[in-house]
């Protein structure tokens, strides 16, 4: 056995991300003939997302499931992968991952910042808004206070939509929504279900404002210490686990929706996507560190 890797994420063991992490562990063990052992640590047992990203960057033998937002702290262009209304449908993301542009930014973050991105095809799901009223267009969000994570992309997006983004810590969201500190929250359906937010707010609007992808990252030196064959095992296993996660997420949407409806939630499907997209267009101008013309480059890849 050459190496023991610890895969970490902050979600519970029932989430698709955990099942995908376990699939990744099995695949790596099998395909490396047991030369790489992989153990999964769910629910933030080793620390928060941000802390584990830093452990990876500084050289710990950890594989952390990362989102592009974190990577953009080092190579700003990664940020656009997280931008609002970027994708028409989730599957389009693969076009970006297959491009030379994506290869360029991943090589850059590996060379300059010791972060090897194995893949980013782990579909986390479209993010939806939960509130006590329907959200069909930006007009419905005027002065609505909504919980956002402490992250510039979220803050700018909801500012552009006219809402008041409150950066509550995640553990306070449940009580915050219940008591009315915030009027709304946003997350993928799986998290809306898991965190029981439907106990205090009864309307989920399918705004799909972000379609979130993530993927495993590993320290570049740890990665380079492996022979090319094992490196390939890590990359292909990560990609296959990501496809498995995408299937799980896609399949579970209907079940989650039925579960939420069973709990008394009403769904709003007739969201004016055109108006939402137009209102958030301005967000793409809020990141001066992006390479000039980045939005056009990415649009060209997607519309191709």
């Amino acid at each position: 056995q050459d190496l023991t890797l610890r895969v970490t994420h902050v979600l519970s063991t029932t989430e698709p991300m955990h099942l995908a992490s376990e699939r990744f562990a099995e695949l790596v063990k099998e395909r490396s003939d047991g030369r790489i052992a992989v153990e999964v640590f769910p629910a933030g047992q080793l620390g928060s997302n941000l802390d584990m990203y830093e452990q990876v960057r500084m050289g710990a033998p950890i594989v952390q499931i990362s989102d592009p937002g974190y990577l953009s702290d080092y190579v700003p262009d990664f940020g656009i992968l997280n931008a609002p209304y970027l994708l028409d449908e989730a599957g389009d993301f693969q076009k970006l991952l297959d491009s030379d542009w994506y290869k360029g930014i991943s090589d850059k973050i590996a060379a300059d910042h010791q972060i090897r991105v194995l893949t980013l095809n782990w579909l986390f799901g479209g993010r939806q808004i939960i509130a006590n009223k329907p959200v069909r267009s930006p007009a419905d969000l005027q002065n609505v206070s909504i919980r956002v994570p402490p992250n510039v992309m979220w803050i700018e997006t909801f500012a552009a939509l006219g809402a008041r983004g409150e950066t509550l810590a995640w553990p306070e969201v449940y009580s915050g929504l219940a008591s009315g500190v915030v009027d709304a929250a946003e997350a993928p359906l799986s998290s809306l279900w898991g965190s029981k937010l439907y106990e205090s707010a009864k309307t989920v609007s399918m705004t799909n404002h972000f379609i979130a992808y993530s993927g495993p990252i590993i320290n570049e030196s740890v990665y380079q210490s492996l022979d090319p064959e094992l490196q390939q095992v890590l990359v292909t296993s990560a990609e296959d686990a990501g496809k498995y996660m995408a299937e799980l997420v896609t399949q579970s949407q209907a079940t989650l929706r039925a579960d939420l409806e069973g709990a008394g939630v009403t769904f709003v499907d007739d969201v004016d996507m055109g108006a939402m997209r137009a209102a958030t267009e301005v967000v793409y101008t809020k990141f001066p560190d992006w390479t000039p013309g980045l939005h056009d480059t990415v649009r060209a890849l997607l519309d191709n």
Partner: peptide
């Protein structure tokens, strides 16, 4: 195999809890 300086990160993590 954990870089020794990340010890400091674990030490400060509780102060990041709102």
């Amino acid at each position: 195999g954990v870089p020794v300086q990340t010890y400091v990160q674990r030490l400060v993590s509780a102060t990041e809890s709102f």
